Amino acid sequence: MKFAVTSKGDSKSDNLVQLLKQYLLDFEMEYEEEEPDIVISVGGDGTLLYAFHRYSSRLDKTAFVGVHTGHLGFYADWTPDEIEKLVIAIAKTPYSVVEYPLLEVTVQYQDEEKETRYLALNESTVKSIDGTFVMDVEIRGEHFERFRGDGLCVSTPSGSTAYNKALGGALLHPSIKAIQLAEMASINNRVFRTVGSPLIIPEHHTCVLRPVNEPDFRISIDHLTLLHKKVKSIHYRVAEEKIRFARYRSFPFWKRVHDSFISE
């Protein structure tokens, strides 16, 4: 089996990376950064997000496993004191695959045939550069509302525990093939009105955002934020691709939620 390891970059994570490499090489596994069968992320959820985007072109061939060196993460099953157990599991035990839905983001531009496509593991946000954010929201080809406020956030089920939760969105189990649209500080008064609640959009529906006035926006894809100019529309849907996690033991989603937000 070919493996690669990514690190958060701090001394604790870097030391664990060296241990993992040496242990797995001792088991006659092959270190391969370009085309790994399994990627071990050492750090936190941000480290795994980086690994996901680095290997997003081979999601059907590469599985991910996380080791957290800080606070418990939703994508990290293992702790530093379990490194030897993890190494033995990787070297000796076939893993089961757990797949999570991803978000497809397609940005189309004015007067241009080209479009830009992204995949997000957690979420995508859209905000204005200056002034009030105004966007027409379409769902399944029908106009739903004209949103005014600070911006909009579209998240995956696994990403529902991140920025979406801070916006008052629901927590979705990753077995649900859907995306969630959450508002950022909407303007609601006698003149302007939005639904005011997060929307759960199933995989066979597409959500389209169309600018009303200003065509330039800051669009984030997970940890990356880029300026997009002369935007014609932004299309969101459940992606055909999925991320594959290598599971060597059970770690239920609701236990992750409990351990992260409730457990002392």
Rank of each mutant, 00 (worst) to 15 (best):
residue 263 S to I: 14
residue 152 L to F: 12
residue 64 F to H: 03
residue 3 F to G: 01
residue 61 K to R: 06
residue 36 P to S: 13
residue 185 A to R: 11
residue 145 E to A: 02
residue 92 K to H: 09
residue 84 E to Y: 04
residue 80 P to N: 04
residue 140 R to I: 13
residue 111 D to Q: 12
residue 86 L to F: 04
residue 258 H to L: 00
residue 15 N to F: 03
residue 203 E to Y: 05
residue 228 H to M: 00
residue 61 K to T: 12
residue 154 V to D: 07
residue 40 I to Y: 00
residue 39 V to L: 06
residue 164 N to E: 05
residue 203 E to F: 09
residue 176 I to A: 10
residue 203 E to K: 11
residue 200 I to F: 04
residue 118 Y to D: 11
residue 59 L to D: 05
residue 212 V to L: 06
residue 29 M to I: 04
residue 27 F to M: 11
residue 189 N to T: 08
residue 135 M to Y: 01
residue 86 L to C: 02
residue 15 N to P: 06
residue 227 L to E: 07
residue 61 K to Y: 14
residue 68 H to C: 00
residue 127 K to F: 01
residue 25 L to W: 00
residue 154 V to C: 14
residue 176 I to Y: 10
residue 246 A to T: 01
residue 137 V to Q: 03
residue 213 N to I: 10
residue 223 H to I: 13
residue 199 L to W: 08
residue 194 T to P: 14
residue 208 V to R: 03
residue 191 V to R: 10
residue 137 V to G: 06
residue 107 V to F: 04
residue 221 I to M: 02
residue 84 E to P: 00
residue 209 L to E: 13
residue 240 E to L: 15
residue 103 L to C: 03
residue 108 Q to I: 03
residue 7 S to R: 09
residue 94 P to H: 05
residue 193 R to L: 09
residue 178 A to N: 08
residue 85 K to L: 13
residue 166 A to T: 10
residue 241 E to H: 05
residue 184 M to Y: 07
residue 103 L to S: 02
residue 110 Q to A: 07
residue 36 P to F: 08
residue 187 I to Q: 07
residue 236 Y to C: 09
residue 115 E to Q: 08
residue 219 I to T: 02
residue 254 W to G: 06
residue 188 N to Y: 00
residue 229 K to N: 01
residue 89 A to H: 13
residue 80 P to C: 11
residue 232 K to V: 03
residue 92 K to S: 05
residue 201 I to P: 03
residue 204 H to Q: 10
residue 35 E to V: 02
residue 121 L to M: 05
residue 86 L to R: 10
